[in-house]
Amino acid sequence: MADRDAPTTTTDDLFRVLADPTRRRILDLLADHGTLTVGELAGHFPGLVSSGISKHLMALRAAGLVTATKQGRNQLYAIDADAMSQALGPWLARYEAYWTGALARLRDLAVDPPHDGTA
């Protein structure tokens, strides 16, 4: 299983890590491909040496955004969807109330349609 020993990260730390365009591109690539090795990632960044990619991956791992799983001689990197979701806590809270209200409106409409008497 992937390593889950990354330290707890505050939302601010997470944002700081994501502020770097190369790291965002790495996340885009991982989202596209599922898992990638450092070498495969490096192929997408001709201007960067692999050690540079590794440094970015370390930052992403430290923030808990990606996981690394050993496979043979390679580490396979993947997005940590759970950590991503945790960062969305405040966003989710905002929509909880919104959807509760919307569904109640839908129920009222379906049960007791206005004007045209269906039901």
Binding site: A31, D32, G34, I79, M84, S85, W99, A102
Partner: peptide, 23 residues
């Protein structure tokens, strides 16, 4: 009658089935 389900996800979709379509 009817059960209505609603799921609203954000980054939760990344890496999961259907995510590519969303992207």
């Amino acid at each position: 009658g009817t059960r209505v389900g609603l799921v609203h996800d954000g980054f939760a979709g990344i890496g999961k089935a259907g995510w590519e379509q969303t992207m």
